[in-house]
Computed example of a mutant assay.
Amino acid sequence: MSEQKTSVLQYIRASIYYLGFYPLTIIHSSLSLIVSPVLNFQQRFKFITLINYFYIFWLRICCGVDVKITGREHLPKDGAYVAVANHSSEWETLFLQTFVRPQCAVLKKELLSIPFFGWALGLLKPIAIDRKQRRGALKQLLTEGKSRLEEGIPVVIFPQGTRVPVGKMGKFNKGGAMLALSAGVPVVPIIHNAGIYWPGKSFTKTPGVVQVHVGEPIPVEGRTVDEVHTDVVNWLEKHMKELDLV
């Protein structure tokens, strides 16, 4: 009975969260589409992602999901870099836009078709990959990613490619390491356990504190793709185990 009450309460709290999430998303996205033509990229990113702070705040108020960050000082203050993070929830896609600023995200092309949310997301210079065109995806990542990095915009990549549920490691692709080497920028690994509190595609959320760990930048100078990729994966796997994700 206690578990049933908890489940009902979580459903109610999640419902309240989305009652705030969707209407404000529509309003803010509409405003973003109107004002974006007169803003440069930096200004546009700041304006469009203002709503992400509301998402994280509203999640804490409604569902009791907070966040604690360790290693924030490892994010480079100047210059571009490639940030790689595990992918287990919708949470990180919202949070990381408040954490890595500005940024260019590597995402699946279908997201840009979502009314309002996707339309606004498309204004942030994402690298929208068509997963049906596997041969061209890597070339697109390296071409567009290097262009963004040369503009001084960090690129955020989820090397697992898709959301991986808690309990599984998934496979980490080498795209992040390849992009970093091609542009001569460091890789910054980021790990979190949001999947415990907001599992992928789950309507309800479990109260708790999402732990976010940021690693020291991994240099690429004079190294091979395999060497950099190995360092990135070793760091991610180590911290996934520490957070009981696998």
Rank of each mutant, 00 (worst) to 15 (best):
A180T: 04
V166I: 15
S147C: 04
E151N: 07
M169P: 03
A180H: 05
V164P: 00
V155H: 05
K146T: 10
K146N: 11
V164G: 05
V156Q: 01
K174H: 04
R148A: 08
R163H: 14
V164H: 00
V164K: 06
Q160L: 08
K174M: 15
P159T: 11
G175H: 00
N173I: 09
G170I: 00
P165C: 07
L179Q: 14
V155A: 07
N173Y: 09
G170V: 01
G145Y: 02
A180K: 03
I153E: 05
G145C: 07
G175T: 01
P159F: 10
I157L: 15
L179I: 09
K146L: 04
E150P: 11
I153G: 04
E150V: 06
S147Q: 09
V156Y: 01
F158R: 06
P154V: 12
K171N: 11
F172P: 15
R148K: 08
L179V: 06
M178P: 13
G145V: 01
K171A: 14
F172I: 10
L149M: 09
K171E: 13
T162I: 02
G175S: 00
K171T: 15
G161C: 06
K146W: 02
K174I: 10
K146A: 06
L179W: 07
I153P: 05
P159Y: 08
E150Y: 08
A177D: 07
G152K: 11
R163Q: 06
R163I: 12
K168H: 15
V156C: 10
I157N: 05
R148I: 05
A177R: 13
E151M: 12
V156R: 03
E151Y: 07
P165L: 08
F158K: 04
G175A: 00
V166G: 15
V166W: 10
N173K: 12
E150K: 13
F172T: 13
K168V: 09
P159R: 12
T162R: 00
P154D: 13
L179D: 06
K168I: 03
G167H: 08
P154T: 13
P165K: 12
R148P: 01
G167Y: 15
E150L: 08
V155R: 06
G161W: 02
V166A: 11
G152V: 10
G167E: 13
G161P: 00
R163G: 10
K146I: 08
G167S: 14
K174D: 11
K146E: 11
E150H: 11
Q160D: 10
G145T: 05
P159L: 07
M178L: 15
P154N: 11
G167Q: 14
G170T: 00
G152W: 10
K146F: 02
P159I: 15
V155K: 07
T162L: 01
A180Y: 04
G152D: 12
K171W: 04
G170D: 03
V164E: 02
